[in-house]
Simulated assay, not measured.
Amino acid sequence: MFNPETNLVNISNEEYKQYAQHMILEHVGLQGQKRIKKGKILIIGAGGLGCPALLYLTASGIGLIGIIDNDEISYSNLNRQILYNHKNIKNKKVLAAKKQLQEINPKCKIITHLYYLNKKNSTEIIKYYDIIIDATDNFQTRYIIDQICYKLHKIHIYGGIEEFEGQVAILNYKSGIRYSNIYCEDKYLQNNNCNRHGVLGITSGFIGILQATEALKIILGINQVTNNCVLLCNLLNTCLKQKKIYISSKTPFIKNNLTSEKQILSNKKIILQQNIEDKKYIIFDIRNKHEFKHKHIKTSINIPLKYFKLKKTINFIKNHCQDNITLGIYCNTSNKSLIASHILDNNQIKNFIIKAKRIN
């Protein structure tokens, strides 16, 4: 838990004026602003999620912020990475971000880590900060963050986006859930980055601000923290839902014999994609429509996973599929296939998973 010593923290006359609207709030006040100033936050990734989080955390008066990234700014970043402009193209993100943030709050110390996080440098970097905000877009880095935050007892705030949807979770907080409890570490998982699926810029802004908000609530000691659940956001429907994550006391974490997705798959009937073309099965492709249109198994039916969960979809399947027909589930990520297969299992519908061709 974040519990800083604030007796030696001074708030200047200039800061009193700057944060006056904070200090009249019941949950902040003078002591709360001192706690904010004492906070040390690391943002891993200075992209679509990192930029809005950095902007608001810097403006709120955080005393020290670290930024780690080694990417250069490109034109495709400008729709959502709001710290940058056309003049910054081909510059390093962390350097452009630091310059912009120091204009907003010169009293905030900005530390730049001009490289990517990896297993060799992660412990040395993360141990220096109180809260770690994961603003990355790849599973490999997320699992490194998960393992090191658990090892060092650091609070980890995860955010993810795709198209018009996003999710946020507070992890490793008060002996709560970890990232590996939400997404089991599995070599078959594929990264859903913005270049692949696209994203509305406002989506990344919304999720990044939520991550920053949760960080400030933890620093201020506010109890209404989104703990042990994932906050699911859909901007098309303007919908927010909390999904509670339950962990059995008998269920260990990663590196302690966690039942991996590969082990779960071993209990399911699996047929390789290259062996499915000539078989007479009903195949449901649960990917998004644009992925299905780009390439799909002949005769397969496209029902995206978000619709697959609906009761009317299950009723449709039951009404149009004979009892002696087995259904195939296809997706290029095995975790989504498992979700769809589990839904069918719960409705007593025979099914198998079609394993996608590996891309080397």
Rank of each mutant, 00 (worst) to 15 (best):
I111K: 12
I43K: 07
L236Q: 15
I24K: 10
I132T: 03
L49W: 00
Y129A: 05
K309E: 08
S122M: 08
N324A: 13
I271S: 00
H320Y: 09
L216R: 04
Q190G: 11
G50D: 08
F2Q: 14
G47L: 04
H153L: 13
H156Q: 03
N324E: 13
K217D: 05
S248A: 11
L57D: 00
H27V: 12
K93S: 01
T226K: 15
I89V: 10
K174M: 15
Y128M: 11
K98A: 07
K336H: 09
L265T: 01
K92T: 12
K255C: 14
E291G: 10
I297F: 00
F139S: 03
N191A: 12
Q224F: 13
K154F: 07
K268R: 13
R178L: 09
I354N: 00
H113T: 13
S249K: 07
G328D: 01
N3F: 11
S175K: 11
C331P: 01
Y129W: 08
E15I: 02
K269V: 03
I297H: 00
T259M: 11
N192P: 10
I104E: 08
S260H: 05
Y179N: 03
S204R: 04
Q322R: 12
E162S: 12
K107S: 11
N315Y: 14
N223K: 14
N77W: 00
C239G: 15
Q140R: 08
I24F: 10
T251D: 06
G63L: 14
V230M: 08
L327P: 00
E5F: 12
S260I: 05
N332L: 09
C331A: 04
I177Y: 06
I209R: 08
I276G: 02
E15D: 03
L55W: 07
K244D: 05
Y179C: 06
D134E: 06
K38L: 09
F139A: 02
C51E: 02
I41D: 06
I104H: 08
I131G: 01
N223A: 10
D186N: 06
L236T: 12
